[in-house]
């Protein structure tokens, strides 16, 4: 009996294509649902109805939209840097799929078991910035370039508090020396292993949001900025930069950016669930269901935030990051380290 799905797949030559296909299919459905949910949530917040016509409750509306985008002509403006312009959507698209594979949906449902999963997720997140910059630079459009510059500065800045807040959790897991029963043997919890973080919370029945509330808030805010969500949607601020880095993209290329954006949302909220909300931990319902429920709750809050606030200005965003978020997260990390050392 293979313990994880990844072990099952290891035995087959088809492992990679099957895994990729599964993830792709699941993510496509997820994105379709998320776009629908976004439209519904925004509609309800604004006292509207949202999509109602295509399918029950308008559920198939985004499917129709996707079909439209697929069937649209791919326009390549005449003066773009063609290699960069063509490659950027793919580069935005690929790492998010890879990052999802690392997520521990339940104790046994992990597509890729990795001892340093957390690092990998952040590393894949970093690639997305390159894609955005390529898109902005290659488009030969001032709005796109401005959006790309903003995006790079923003992503690099906010990765610091994001990682620092995650590091506090890692510190807790590592230093507390949780011992976990894994595969019949007792192992010391490894704070960088995503499933270990969840198991540490699972076994002690204590979600880290209670242990690390400040880190959780910092993580959430940084995650909003990382995924370019309002009020930090400055790289694609439609009232300033038309559409930011994807101004010149159309059809399927545009929808790949769209896909990446929404999958990124899923990844950061899954990571939030892993780090702070006990992962698959929950009564009655099966683990993966809990995992997704929690993730979608986090996404709901992200949507709620988006449809409430106006957008920050670029310099204020940076000020907020460097003067508020980073000092706070460093303080939090130091305090955690201190407490951990004393205990």
């Amino acid at each position: 009996m293979p313990e994880t799905l990844s072990q099952l797949l290891d035995d087959s030559v088809l492992a990679m294509p099957i895994a990729a296909g599964l993830i792709m299919g699941a993510l496509t459905i997820n994105v379709l649902m998320l776009v629908w949910a976004e439209r519904k949530v925004s509609a309800w917040i604004q006292r509207r109805m949202g999509p109602t016509e295509v399918g029950p409750f308008g559920l198939l509306q985004t499917l129709a939209d996707m079909l439209k985008l697929i069937s649209k002509q791919l326009i390549t403006p005449s003066n773009v840097d063609k290699p960069l312009f063509h490659l950027a959507p793919l580069l935005a698209f690929a790492p998010v799929i890879a990052a999802v594979a690392l997520m521990p949906f339940s104790k046994s449902l992990i597509l890729v078991q990795n001892d340093f999963g957390l690092l990998f997720v952040f590393a894949f997140g970093g690639i997305a910035v390159i894609a955005i910059f390529m898109a902005g630079w290659g488009s030969n459009n001032k709005y796109a370039l401005l959006g790309a510059i903003r995006s790079v500065a923003q992503s690099i800045s906010y990765e610091i508090p994001l990682i620092l807040s995650a590091l506090s959790v890692v510190l807790v897991v590592n230093a507390m020396g949780f011992t976990l029963a894994s595969g019949g043997s007792i192992v010391v919890a490894n704070g960088l292993d995503l499933s270990h973080i969840v198991m540490a919370q699972d076994q002690h029945g204590l979600w880290f949001v209670l242990v690390q509330p400040i880190a959780a808030i910092i993580y959430f805010i940084s995650a909003l900025a990382e995924t370019n969500r309002a009020p930090f949607d400055i790289p694609e601020a439609e009232s300033e930069l038309v559409a930011g880095f994807h101004t010149e993209y159309s059809g399927m290329r545009f929808s790949m950016f769209f896909f990446a954006e929404y999958t990124n949302m899923l990844i950061v909220s899954m990571l939030a669930v892993v780090l702070f909300f006990g992962g698959w931990d929950g009564p009655v319902l099966p683990g993966p269901l809990w995992f997704f429920l929690k993730s979608y709750m986090v996404i709901f809050v992200m949507m709620w935030v988006r449809w409430t606030f106006p957008r920050l200005r670029f310099d204020q965003l940076m000020t907020f990051c460097w003067k508020v978020m980073i000092p706070l997260s460093i303080l939090n990390l130091l305090a955690t380290a201190f407490v951990v050392a004393v205990l």
């Binding site: 917040i45 604004q46 006292r47 309002a230 949607d233 009232s239 106006p310 957008r311």
Partner: peptide, 16 residues
């Protein structure tokens, strides 16, 4: 004005 600043919801409330 709020729409220009990126706040879409107040826009719809005021239009209501």
């Amino acid at each position: 004005f709020l729409l220009d600043l990126g706040g879409i919801t107040p826009f719809l409330y005021s239009f209501d």
